[in-house]
Structures are given as structure tokens and as C-alpha cells.
Design a protein around this nucleic acid. Structure first.
Lengths: 199, 199, 199, 199
DNA sequence: GATGAATGAGCGTTCATTCAT
DNA sequence: GATGAATGAACGCTCATTCAT
């Protein structure tokens, strides 16, 4: 039996290599060396280079989904859930630089066509955000005028841009918590200064 | 003197080709053919393939900056300026699919190192957002607690994610105006249902 | 002791696979799968891929020799023997497409050097033709001017070309019997119209 | 313009390399080196390795056809024409060992499918033999009972087997002329000893 | 003996870049 | 300046062979 251990080793190696060099600059032999495996071995576990990228992506996103769902269960209010999601995403991205890079790469490089062949784990992840929004709208705490799909785009877009900046190295001295708080704060109350009670 | 006409033709062709196939899948000969120029001619105007990408990027972003600055001049209030920026960005991305793709590509594929060699026109563009926020904070209309840098990330991230979705083809039936309104609305007032006056 | 059963199974599988895909396009794993044996097992019975080809060849030609010798025993006249040989060869080639292909392949692809390492069963087979000719010459029924070696080349070459055409699919609607008759007829009396008795 | 000179050089080199090592054992880099050309250059003139083989084949057979047609024009009687064809073929094969090998290889290795994509120059060559036979039959000098297609197979098969033997190195001390005479003789009068006039 | 996962050398092909014209 | 034929390094992938189990 093809060892699941080796499968994991290759995935891990690929994540690292893709993150470091980008998909196109990554060489199969780089991944093989990183995984301490022969080049050919990789092809026992994956169909081709692209398949590795997709697998890495699906796998990592899968983990992300599992984790965040567990955390979300514990929360009641949509506001809290949104906060938790944001928190978790940023923390993971900070912790796992590789994953963050791979998300960037995959999101921009995978052609639409190829992505359609696979049921999209990533969309599942995005869907979680939309659900939180919808629950909030149903509960009457989030504004109805903002479409959940748009809200989802704004939220994920923000998270993604933030982690992009981290990796580009734009010095941003905020801690993850501060970052997370600022995001949540903006999403919840907007940018505008709150009108005073009297007005 | 190397004709500026040819330079422009190549840039335009490259924009198209990079957008259609992505940087790594684009071949120099594709660009040459699109520009109706010999392969070798391209090397009279650019150092190498990557140089073309950067040039395309700088050039297009440069245009974006010029245009939006012109529009912003006409507005007084930071809120209006923010609205104008969002509007303009989305409209351009919708109009110029190529540019949108090239931004995605460049943003995710250009290694940090290379980018440092050039003064970053793109950062200038992002700076405009931050300035609007800061002006709003100075004027007392935008909350001080949200750091301008973070606000900028949220805003650009949202815009970028939205145009990403357009190109992935996620059917999103909003018009640019609606989209733009929803964004502005969220940024200004947040997600939360406004407290009723009496409460 | 390595089971002769498995040896046979592999040979049979290899014959099929070589015939279907050609030697170079055949993969060891194809043969292994066809023989319902592990890839590695093949190397318990054969030294390498080429060794399999040679073995297949020798084995099959060996069978051919046995069979035809048995049939030839029953005939007296060299003419009848020649007829029997031609008949038998064509019938076998028609029956056993795989063998026919393998003969073609082996005959054209095996380098001279390698073939010398083995005593050549195939030459034995060709030798049978030459012997028939020589017997006929000794008996005074076949012309002395035609060297037995040349006659052998003509006869085998014809047979081989005919089976090549069968496999290329050149529609040739003759039955094996007709084919065999035409060949024998030409070899015996030539192409020329027989001079009339009076002349 | 891609120089026709280089095209020729590559064809010539490929003929040599294919002949020496066989199609599958020949490396593109072998051909490139032999042609004193860069590996990549070959792909300016040919689509792929197989395309080279086909081109070599078509080209060489084309030459063969031209030459032999020229010679045949000068002859009147079908017997003479047959003799000329046989002579010419054997002489060319003896002279141009590479071509002989390439014919063998192509004939046995090219899959049926691929050959159909091209109009078959080789069939044209074979057709010449059949025509000679048919002319002879029409003229009443060749026997009607032998189908021209079969006769063609016998004749070409013989020629091919003879040149095969030359290259395998089976010592055959006949000169081309003797060989040619023996062949013609057999085809014309068969193997059988001519009945004496009295009988 | 049998297995089949692992190996890694090897090759066809691509394509950015150069340079003679 | 412009051309595009020529270059050759580089890489994804295959598959015969090995060897630990």
C-alpha cells in the first residue's frame, strides 16, 4: 500500500516549496528533495505537478474548515462568530506562512476550468462567512441591505489582503489581536464616527 | 531612438497576453505576435520577460492613479472621496479585465526582492486610500480607532476580492453601482443594524 | 524452484503485450498485469525486458519448428514439403497475430550483437526452408541455378511481407488457402506464361 | 526563412542515427549532434521525433520512386521492367545502408493509425511493382492466375528480406548482380526444373 | 518465492534570450 | 533599429529495475 505517511510528507514539502518559490518556480525535484523522496515517488501519489498544488490546497483548507467550525460551535451570537472567524483566520495565516502563500497562489493561478473539476473546498470555507452573515441578518442584528455574498467578499478580501501584506513584508506593527479587533470593529460599526445619542 | 509607439504596442499586447494566460504561461512569442513585432524586438525595449510584467503593471497603475486623482480633486468630503475611489476602481476593473488580472498576478507572483528594485507605483495607489482615511480622521468624520493602514487594507482587499470573483466567474448579479454602494455603505456604517433613536 | 507455470504465464502475457504495443511501447507493468503477477516477479524469471522479448521469440519459434517438422515428415516430395511449409506458416501467422507481430518486431529491432549471444532458433526455422530446397535440388526437381539460400530468402521474405500486410490491415481478401496456392504456384512455375507444348 | 539546407542536414543526420540505433534508441540529441545543430533547432523543422522518422521515410522513398520511374521508362517489356526494378532496389539498398534500415524500422514500428494520416508514399512505391505485373498480364506474358497484389508482396518481401539479411550480416557472398539475377530468374520461371522439350 | 513501493537516470520538448543579417 | 532563426539549459514525467518486507 502506498504509505499515507509519504503522502503527507510530500504534501508538507510541497506546501513549503510552493510557498517559498511560487508554483511555477517550484521544481518537482525541489519538492522531492524537501520530502526526502525520489522524484518518481511523487508520481505514485499525484498525477502531476498541478495535482500537487490542488491537493495541498484542498488539504490545508480542509483543516482550516474543521478547526473554525469547532470554534464557531461554541459561540452563540453572529457577532461573536464573525469575530472568531476573523481571529482564527488571521492567527492561522500568521502561524502558517506557507498556507497563506499557497492560498494566494492557488487563488490567482488556478485556471477556472481546472477548479471546476473538483468540488471546491475553498468555496466551502468562504461559505462559512456568508452563513454567519445570513444568520446575523435572520437574527436581525446584521443589516439586510448588505448582501451576504458581498459582505463575504469584503471580509475575506480584507483578511487576504492583510496576510498578503504580511508576506510582502510591509511592516505593520499590529499584533494579530489588534488587527483582528480593528477588522471586527470596522465590520460591525463602519468607519463613521458614531452619532452622539442626542443627535 | 526606440520608437515610443512600439513600446506602447508591446505593453498593450503584454497586458492582454498576461491577462489571458497568466505570466508563466505567456510566451514572449505570444506577446510579439499580439504586438505584431518580432520576438527579438521586444528585447530592444525590455530587459527580460519579468521586466515586461513590471512595466505593464507600473504603466497601468500609473494611469489608474492619474484618473482617480483627477476625480478626487472634485470632491470635498472624505466620505465622497472614498465613494469615488471605490466606484472608480470597480468600474475600471470591470472595464479592463486585463488590468484586473495583471494586478492579481503581479500582486501574488512578484517576489519581494524584485519589487524592491523599483519604486513602487502600486504603493502610491494604495497610499491614496490611506490618505483619504487620514483626511477623514483629521476632519473628525472617520473613527480614530481604526488605523488608516488597516482601513486601507480592508478597502483594497475588498475591491480586489470582488474583481477576483468577477474573473473566476462566480456569478454575482450586482451591477457595479450596487456593488459600489454596498461597499461604501458597509465601510461607512458597518454591518450592525443602527440602534434606533429611542434606544 | 521457480514455477514453470509462472514462466509460461509471463511469456504468454509478454507475447500479447509486445504484439499489441510493440517492444518499446510495452511496459513491464503491462506484462505483469496481463500475467497477473507482480512487476518484480518478472525479474525472477527474466534478466531484463529484452530478455523477455528474446524468450518469447525463441519459445514461439520453437513451437513453430516442432509443428512444421511433424507435418513435413509425412510428405515425400520436396514440392509437397514446400507447399506444407508455406501453408503452415501462413496459417499460424493468421491464427496467432501476436506471434506474427513479435516476429516482425524481433527481426527488425534486435540488434545484431544481442542476437549473437544466443544460438539462433530462428535460423533453425529458416534452415528448414533451405533444406527443402536443397533436397529438391538433390532430387533434381528444383533448379540448381537458384542458390538454396536465396530461395530461402525469397520464400520467407514473401511469407513475412504477406503477414505484415495482414497486420497493417491492407485489405487483401484472399483466404489463406488461396494465398498459399498462389505462392506455391509462383515459386514452382514462375511468373511466365508456360510455353505451349509445341514450341 | 527556415533554411532548406538545415532541413536536409537534419534529415540526413536522422537517417544515419535511426539506422544505427533504431528509432526508439535514437536520441534527439544524437540527431542534433550529428546534424551539428542545437537540439531545439530540430523542432523548428519537425513537430516531434516521430515526425522526423516519417519525413525521412517519405523523402527517401520519394527519391527511390523518382529514380526507378526514370529507369523504367527506358524499358519496354514487363520482364525487363521487373528486372530493372529488382536491380535498382537491391543496388540502392546495398549502397544506402541507412535507407534500408529505416525502411525496416518504419515498416514494422509505425503504428497503422499514424500512417493513415499521411498519404502513403511507400504504397506508391509498392504500386509500381503491381503495375509492372499488371502490364505483363495484360500483355499476356505474365500468368493471370497470380494476382498482381500477391506477386507484388512476393517480390517486395523477397527484396526486403534480402536487404535485412545483408544488415544482419548473414554472410552471403553473392554480388548484387548475381542476387538480382537469381531473383528475376525465379520470379520468371519458378523453381521447377524446366520440362525437357521432348516430354 | 513473491510482492509492489521506491528509485533515479534519462529523454522529449519548450521557450527565454541572443545575434548574424 | 528590426528581424526571426538558432540556441541550449532546464524541467516534467516515465519506467526498467531494485530491494525491503
Amino acid at each position: 500500500m502506498k504509505s499515507p505517511d509519504k503522502h503527507r510528507k510530500i504534501i508538507r514539502a510541497a506546501t513549503k516549496v510552493f510557498a517559498k518559490k511560487g508554483f511555477f518556480n517550484a521544481r518537482i525535484s525541489d519538492i522531492a528533495k524537501e520530502a526526502k523522496v525520489a522524484d518518481g515517488t511523487i508520481y505514485l501519489y499525484f498525477n502531476n505537478k498541478f495535482d500537487i498544488l490542488l491537493s495541498v490546497f484542498e488539504q490545508e483548507i480542509g483543516k482550516l474548515i474543521e478547526q473554525v467550525l469547532l470554534l464557531l460551535e461554541k459561540e452563540e451570537s453572529p457577532q461573536a462568530k464573525l469575530q472568531v472567524f476573523i481571529n482564527h483566520h488571521l492567527e492561522e495565516m500568521k502561524k502558517n506562512k506557507y498556507l497563506a502563500e499557497v492560498i494566494h497562489i492557488e487563488l490567482r493561478q488556478t485556471s477556472k476550468l481546472i477548479r471546476e473539476y473538483r468540488k471546491n473546498t475553498f468555496n466551502e470555507y468562504l461559505g462559512i462567512i456568508a452563513q454567519i452573515i445570513e444568520q446575523g441578518q435572520a437574527a436581525g442584528v446584521f443589516r439586510q441591505e448588505i448582501h451576504s455574498h458581498v459582505a463575504r467578499q469584503i471580509i475575506f478580501g480584507s483578511l487576504d489582503e492583510i496576510s498578503r501584506c504580511w508576506h510582502v513584508g510591509s511592516d505593520c506593527s499590529f499584533t494579530t489581536e489588534e488587527m483582528s479587533w480593528q477588522l471586527t470593529s470596522l465590520f460591525q460599526s463602519g468607519l463613521l464616527v458614531a452619532p452622539t445619542a442626542s443627535s
